[in-house]
Computed example of a mutant assay.
Amino acid sequence: MYRFAAETRQDVYEVEALFDLCFAPGREALSSYRLRDDVPPIRSLSLVARDAEDILSGAIRFWPVTIDGAVTLLLGPIAVHPTRQGEGLASDLVRLSLDRALEAGWQRVMLVGDAPYYQRFGFEKLEHVVMPPPTNPDRVLGRSLVPGAWDSVTGEVLRWAGQRLPGD
């Protein structure tokens, strides 16, 4: 059994250590990290999962980005401690955080990831959305949280410039 909560400032170092454990060295060199530079994650949607002993077992983060002026959520990273993988915790984190995003008024979410894994959550390849290079365009996926949210949203994904966020 896990306890899910919004990530707090006290969780940051533990979450970063989990991401370091679960991802290859140099993860911060990925193009998606350029979109996160000096932009705080959306804490209300960025969740941690702790076990009965209060040990961090998983975490997911979200960041604001824009695409041709359309405010969009960027999901990632998401990680589950190696000793907890295979228990469905990542799925729980994705589903719970997407439910919270919808409740908070977000319309669309995107990520860079494996389509076969993320299709079960309703993500599809975004044909007309361009992540900074060297991102593989086949890994740029999106999901509408409300009907038609991706209709006519095209262009480059840009770093957040401090506009008002849904739910603010």
Rank of each mutant, 00 (worst) to 15 (best):
G86N: 02
H81R: 06
L111W: 11
T135W: 03
L165G: 03
V109R: 02
L158M: 13
D51K: 07
A101I: 04
L45D: 11
V112S: 03
V109Y: 09
P134F: 11
S97V: 08
A149T: 13
P116H: 09
F121H: 10
F123M: 02
Y117W: 14
T66H: 12
D168E: 15
T66C: 09
E124C: 01
E16C: 06
S152R: 15
Q85N: 06
L96R: 15
M1R: 11
V71Y: 05
S44P: 10
P134N: 09
L111C: 10
I42K: 09
V12N: 13
R27T: 02
V109N: 07
V129I: 14
W63P: 01
Y13E: 13
L145N: 07
D151N: 15
R159E: 08
R61E: 12
A6N: 03
V39D: 02
D37G: 00
G142R: 01
V48D: 08
D68A: 14
D38C: 05
D54A: 15
Y118K: 09
G162V: 10
Y117V: 12
L45F: 07
V94Q: 01
G122R: 07
L102C: 09
L145A: 08
S31T: 08
R95T: 13
V94K: 05
E124G: 08
G167S: 07
L45S: 05
L47P: 01
T8Y: 07
L98R: 08
E16M: 13
V130D: 10
A79W: 08
D68P: 03
H128I: 00
A149M: 15
E28P: 03
G88M: 07
G105S: 07
D114F: 13
Q107S: 14
R120L: 12
F121S: 02
R43W: 04
D151Q: 15
P133W: 04
L145C: 11
F4C: 00
Q107V: 04
R9S: 14
Q10G: 14
L93R: 07
R34T: 14
E124Y: 07
P77K: 06
R50T: 14
L158H: 04
Q163P: 00
G155W: 08
R9V: 10
P133G: 09
I78F: 02
V80P: 04
V71F: 03
L30W: 11
D114Y: 14
R100C: 09
F62S: 04
L35R: 00
S152H: 15
R34F: 06
S44F: 09
G113C: 13
D11S: 10
Q163F: 00
A101K: 11
V130I: 15
G86S: 04
A149G: 15
L30E: 14
L30T: 15
V129T: 06
A104Y: 01
T135K: 05
A101M: 12
R3Y: 07
P41S: 13
P166V: 12
L21Q: 10
L96E: 10
L141V: 07
R50K: 15
V48R: 04
D37I: 01
A101P: 01
D151I: 13
L75N: 09
R61D: 06
R95S: 13
V39A: 05
Q107D: 14
D92V: 12
F23R: 04
L126N: 01
R139C: 04
P41V: 08
G86R: 08
L93I: 06
G26R: 02
D54N: 15
W160Q: 04
T83P: 00
D37A: 14
R43L: 12
D138F: 02
